[in-house]
């Protein structure tokens, strides 16, 4: 009963209005990019949720591995001097 060839999976990103980033909303199957775009419109924007759609075949996304999250992200945690609150200034100084 299975089809010989399954339609590839696409990830869908939607910009809800100008001024905002495209945001990942989910995925769907389609034969090519054009069909993915049309299907994304029907599946993810039935209530005017978007003004722009990106689709990309899922296999093209190269993602970081959660097991390596430590090596990747922990080095930023002890660099408090990258935040404005690290610097102590008297209250009298305004607009800074």
């Amino acid at each position: 009963m299975s089809d010989k060839k399954n339609w590839p999976l696409y990830e869908v990103f939607i910009r809800s209005k100008n001024g905002l980033n495209h945001r990942h909303v989910g995925s769907l199957h389609a034969t090519d990019e054009e069909m993915a775009l049309e299907n994304a419109r029907d599946v993810y924007t039935r209530r005017s949720e978007g003004v722009s759609i990106w689709v990309v075949e899922s296999r093209h996304i190269f993602a970081s591995n959660p097991d390596e999250a430590g090596e990747l992200f922990e080095p930023a945690q002890d660099k408090v001097y990258r935040h404005p609150t690290f610097y102590e200034l008297p209250d009298e100084v305004k607009h800074i």
Binding site: D3, K4, K5, W7, T31, D32, M35
Partner: peptide, 9 residues
Amino acid sequence: VREAAMAHA
């Protein structure tokens, strides 16, 4: 339909 769509693509 599924097969034809794939072939068309």
